Simulated assay, not measured.
Amino acid sequence: MDAHSTAVAIIDMELDFDEDEHGHRSAASEEVGQGEDVRALVRRLQASHVWIRQQVAHLQRRLVTLQLDRQRRFYEGRERLQRLLRNLQGRYGRDWGL
């Protein structure tokens, strides 16, 4: 997820509910408090959207970190087993193959 694209989209989406494209006040915005309620709702939704994207990015980073840690432990375990097998091969003069 690209947090930058969200921030740019929020900046680009400065909604003006008070005026139409010709600069005239709309009838909906003249209703008592409705324009402010819609504006506040849009701001809350934008803030929630940004928060959700941040949380998803955080969880994705955490998931990748956990997967890399698991892979590292696997490789370390494999190396220990190969070392043990080499020691046993040397001790008993056998070749079991790796």
Rank of each mutant, 00 (worst) to 15 (best):
A47C: 07
E14F: 14
R94Q: 11
V50R: 13
Q34T: 10
G77L: 07
V42F: 11
L84V: 01
G90W: 01
R70E: 11
E36N: 14
D18S: 14
G97P: 04
V50W: 08
V38D: 10
G23M: 07
R62D: 13
E76I: 06
R43Y: 08
M1T: 06
L81H: 12
M13L: 06
A40G: 05
R62T: 15
L59H: 14
V42A: 15
L84D: 08
E31G: 07
G90T: 09
D12C: 08
H4K: 14
T65F: 00
L88W: 03
D37S: 14
A28S: 03
V42T: 11
M1S: 09
A40T: 15
H58W: 02
V38F: 12
A9Y: 09
V32W: 00
R62S: 15
W51G: 03
M13G: 09
S5E: 13
V64H: 12
Q55F: 07
R83K: 14
R78D: 05
G35Y: 00
N87S: 03
G77C: 04
E19Y: 09
H58C: 04
R80I: 03
E31H: 08
Y75D: 14
R78L: 12
T65M: 01
A40P: 00
V8S: 06
A9K: 14
R72L: 04
A7E: 11
A27E: 14
Q67L: 09
R83D: 15
H24T: 07
E21P: 06
Q54E: 15
Q46Y: 01
A47I: 00
D20Q: 09
I11T: 13
R80F: 00
R94H: 05
Q34M: 15
R73C: 05
A7Y: 11
R91F: 02
R53T: 04
E79A: 04
R78G: 02
Q34F: 10
R94D: 06
R80C: 00
L41N: 08
L84C: 09
H24Y: 13
Q67P: 02
V32Y: 05
R94E: 12
H24E: 12
E36T: 14
V38P: 01
H4Y: 15
E14Q: 15
Q89I: 04
R70G: 05
G33N: 08
R61S: 02
R83M: 11
R72I: 00
R72G: 00
I52E: 13
A27D: 05
D69Y: 05
Q55L: 12
A28E: 03
R61H: 04
I10A: 02
D12W: 06
R83C: 10
G93W: 03
R80L: 03
R25S: 08
M13I: 01
G77E: 12
R62I: 12
A7P: 00
L41V: 06
I11H: 14
L85G: 02
Y75R: 10
I10Y: 01
V38Y: 08
F74H: 08
V56N: 05
Q71A: 13
R53P: 01
V42I: 14
R39P: 02
D18W: 08
G33E: 13
G35V: 01
L98M: 07
I11C: 06
D20C: 04
E30K: 10
V32G: 10
H4T: 15
Q60K: 09
A27W: 05
D37G: 12
Q46R: 06
V8H: 03
A3C: 13
